[in-house]
Amino acid sequence: MLRYALRRLLLAVPLLIGITFVSFIVIHLAPGTPGEVQTGDLSIQSDRDVQKLLMELYDLDKPLHVQYAKWLTRLVRFDFGRSFSPDARPVLQKIGERLPITLLLNVVEMLIIIALAVPIGVLSATRQYSMFDKVTTVFVFVGFATPDFWLALLLMILFGVQLGWLPISGLRSLNWEYLSFWRQQGDFASHLVLPIIVATFGGLAGFSRYMRQSMLEVIRQDYVQSARAKGLAERVVIGKHALRNAMLPIVTVLGLSLPGLIGGSVIVESIFAIPGMGQLMVQAVFERDYPVIMGNLVIVSTLTLGANLLADVTYGLVDPRIRVGARRGRR
């Protein structure tokens, strides 16, 4: 397993280069040029000269492979370049100031989702077609089908405007600087409550349904039946034998959603005015801010490769019979 993991890690470097190369080409060939005014209202002040100037400044007039080579050589020195947007700030700085809040939100949300989804899934599987099962099924799907913005606005109206218990948007109150340390933390946390509720509600369906479904599969397997036949307590059967095996899809889905932790949800962020990665990326995409897009891509790819590797390794822990990367025809 260790050798397998090492080999995968070694392979990751050329793979990463390949991914960035293909993406680089597609991003640059897609319609649009950096520096277009994004308002949708043209104005008489023409930006033509600016455009030409920027094209030269950013080497956009050079052939694509030259641009890519330059980008890659800089990347080796861990230099992600400067943003094309008029603030011309280093990409790492731009991403760096937005990553923490997105990461915080998503990690908390993910933990809550798992903490809720696993028990919901297990209980509704072991009591299939019970009242509990039916109610939770409808509940999680309601959560899934409810548009984020709708729920967000409803909660904002209720808790922010009507009751006045929670702040509506942003991360900190205006008088934040004047608060004591603990009050500052409390203020910050209260700003995060609504976004986290909204994000959690929407994400609950996925995990709990995977959990329920695979639990249903597992509890009818022979070994579970035999464990039960041996007279083991139901709790031990479910909790120890069945649950572990049923985690397989959860591990996969977790692996798939790990890179998303730094992605940020555009809708939640823009509704709650949270300056996170989602907003940064959307802006970068619309402005064709290639260095920021590529910078993000490198981080996301690294995370994706890592997360999927991690998932593959975890399969072995969940079900010891699984050997990923084993060659065919062993037998």
Binding site: L11, L15, G18, I19, V22, S23, V26, I27, A30, L256, P259, V285, I293, L297, V300, S301, T304, L305, N308, V324, G325, A326, R327, R328
Partner: peptide, 24 residues
Amino acid sequence: HGGVVDATLMRLVDLMLVFPRFFL
């Protein structure tokens, strides 16, 4: 099949996952 087939297909999955969909 596992082995090379698995490795190739899963790297394709990795590529597709990180590919900037908007530009596609």
